[in-house]
Design a protein around this nucleic acid. Structure first.
Lengths: 200, 200
DNA sequence: CCCGCTTGCCTAAAACCTTTAGGAAGCTGC
DNA sequence: GCAGCTTCCTAAAGGTTTTAGGCAAGCGGG
C-alpha cells in the first residue's frame, strides 16, 4: 500500500540516537526558548517523522528532562574548570561568572537547568556536583556547619536569582550597568563571607 | 440546523469576563502548575466552549500574561501592607516573608509572576511597585546611590532565587531545615546592609 | 550469497489545544 | 415589544502528543 516517490534515495537512515536528539533539543532551546522545544520541532530538524523519535524518547517530558540534565552537566563542568587552582574571592568570582556567562551564551539551556526535576532525578544529576563546588568555594572562608550550608544556599540563591532576573530583562533600561552591580554584589558577598555574623 | 437538547435550561449565560477568566486561570495555576494553564482548561472550569473565551482574551499568551500581572499586583499589595510601620531589619524580614509565604501558598501564581513580560508590559506592571518597596526598605540602612541600586538588585536576587530553589525542591532532603537557613540568611543580609563594603 | 532477525523509521489514527469565522440566542433600552 | 449589541455557540483548520503496527535496511550465520 505505501508507495514511495521513485527516483530518490529512499529511506536513508537519519542515524537518530537519544544523545543526538537531546543535543539538537538543547540547540533549539538556545535558539527559540526552552518552552518552545517540542518533539515535533526536533523531528523537523532531523527531517524525520515525529513518531520516529518515540523509540529514543519516552515522551515530551523525557526530552525536556534530558536537556535539563545536559545543561547541568555543562554548567558543572565549566564551574569545575573555573575553580581549579583558585580560592577565596578569586574562586567566588570565577564561579559566579561561569553562571552568568553560561546563561548569556545559552539562555535556553540555562532555562532548562532551572526546570524542576523529581527528587530522584535531581539526586542523580550534576546539580549535586554544583553544590559540592559551591561548598568548595567556602573552604576559602572561615565557616563551620551549619553556617556553611546556609552560605551555600545563599550563594546558590544569589547566582540563580541574579542571572534569572537579568535574563528576564529585569535590569534592562535602568542605570547603573548590570555589570557594575554584579561586580559590587560579588564584593559584598565576599565581605559577608569573610565576616559572617554569629547567631544572635 | 442546530438543534438543542430539549428539556434543559438552554443557553443560560455563564457571565464570563476577562477578570473572572484570569482569576480562574490563577486558581488553576495554583492547583496544577502555571504551565498547565490552558485556555481549554479554563473553559472547562466554566463549562463553556473554548471558542467563547476568545471574546475576552486575545490568545493563550494573553491569558498567561494577565495571570502574571495579577500575581505581581497581589505580591505588591501584600508587600506594601507588610512594610507599613516597619523599618530596618524588621522591614527586611517582613518583606522577605511575604515573598516566601506567597510562593508557598500560591506556587502557580508565583511561577506566573516570574513569567517573562515584554518591556512595555513590565513597565506598567506592579513589578515597578515591588522595586519601589524594596528601595523603601533600604531607607532604613545607610546606603547612597549607586550602592542602593546594587543592594536592591541583590535583595531581589536573593528573595527570588531562594524562593525559586526552595519551590523547585532544591532544599528537600537535606539538613538543616530551610526555615533555619532563611532566618540566618536574613540575619546575614541585615548585617551586610548595615556594613556595606566601600568600593575597593 | 541469501535467509532471517533486529532495529529504525514510517504510516495511520486518536486525543487534545489553539485560533478564526460566522450564526443564533439572550439581554438592554427605547 | 422590537432593534441591536453582546455573549456564547457550531464549525473547521492546523498543530502537538502518543500509541500501534508495518516495511525495509543492514547485520550475522549458514
Amino acid at each position: 500500500m505505501a508507495f514511495r516517490q521513485t527516483g530518490e534515495t529512499v529511506m536513508a537512515r537519519a542515524g537518530l540516537t537519544t544523545e543526538r536528539l537531546v543535543r539538537a533539543g538543547a540547540e533549539l532551546a538556545d535558539e527559540v526558548g526552552f518552552d518552545q522545544v517540542t518533539v515535533s520541532a526536533v523531528a523537523r530538524r532531523f527531517d524525520v517523522k515525529v513518531a520516529s523519535l518515540y523509540s529514543h524518547l519516552r515522551n515530551s517530558q523525557d526530552l525536556k528532562t534530558r536537556i535539563a540534565l545536559l545543561a547541568l552537566e555543562e554548567l558543572a563542568d565549566r564551574a569545575a574548570e573555573a575553580l581549579a587552582g583558585r580560592s577565596g574571592k578569586d574562586a567566588l568570582g570565577a564561579f559566579a561568572n561561569v553562571y552568568r556567562d553560561y546563561a548569556r551564551a545559552h539562555p535556553g539551556r540555562y532555562a532548562a537547568a532551572r526546570h524542576p526535576l523529581d527528587t530522584e532525578t535531581a539526586a542523580g544529576s550534576a546539580g549535586v556536583r554544583i553544590v559540592q563546588l559551591t561548598r568548595a568555594i567556602l573552604r576559602g572562608y572561615d565557616l563551620t556547619e551549619p553556617d556553611q550550608t546556609h552560605a551555600v544556599r545563599l550563594l546558590g540563591s544569589v547566582f540563580h536569582g541574579y542571572v534569572s532576573l537579568e535574563a528576564a530583562g529585569g535590569f534592562d533600561h535602568s542605570a547603573p550597568d548590570p555589570q557594575e552591580s554584579w561586580t559590587r554584589i560579588l564584593d559584598a558577598l565576599d565581605s559577608l563571607l569573610r565576616d559572617w555574623p554569629a547567631k544572635p
